[in-house]
Amino acid sequence: MDAVLFFLFAGIALAGAINLIRESHPIYSALSLVAVMGALAGLYLMLGAEFIAVVQIIVYAGAIMVLFVFVLMLVNAAPEVKLDRSKMAKNVGPPLLTLLLVEIVAVLRGKYPTSDLVHPSLLSGDNTRQIGKLLFSKFLLPFEVTSILILVAIMGAVVLGKRRPDDSR
């Protein structure tokens, strides 16, 4: 049962990620990324992180990606045009990427050979409560700093998005 679910979600995630690259229209890329995020939320549920799974849906799929789709609709994005300016990217890129993948997988296989070091007991209980407690005690300072970061981001977005009166658009 677990394996079936894992391969289902992993398959959706991989298919979505490949489609993101393959698709020439940005809106379809965005939709496949939403599919990846949904599949990842499913995997998080399997890993006993239901709070993170739901926040993934709310924040990533429901807010960030909606923003992407919104902007894509606003600028009426057309399918992208390939200019093929760099020959190097075409020739050297794929081998280097494969190398990167092989390297990461090799390290992972070496470090964590199919063993299952899971301690489910440690993650049982009220997920949200535990995260909340950690967030407001041990990680209080980073939490406050991120709130300032968000404030700065909002102000930055407003300043950038504001139309100046002397603009001739």
């Binding site: 939709l31 239901e50 739901v54 849906i57 429901g62 807010a63 909606v66 789709v69 997920n127 949200t128």
Partner: peptide
């Protein structure tokens, strides 16, 4: 009876935009 039930509803509601936005586009 999810123990994050209310967040689940908020998540589904936030995804609801896609149906309408994609229909429009």
């Amino acid at each position: 009876d999810l123990n994050v039930g209310i967040l689940f509803i908020l998540g589904v509601t936030s995804l609801g935009v896609y149906g309408i936005a994609l229909a429009g586009w």
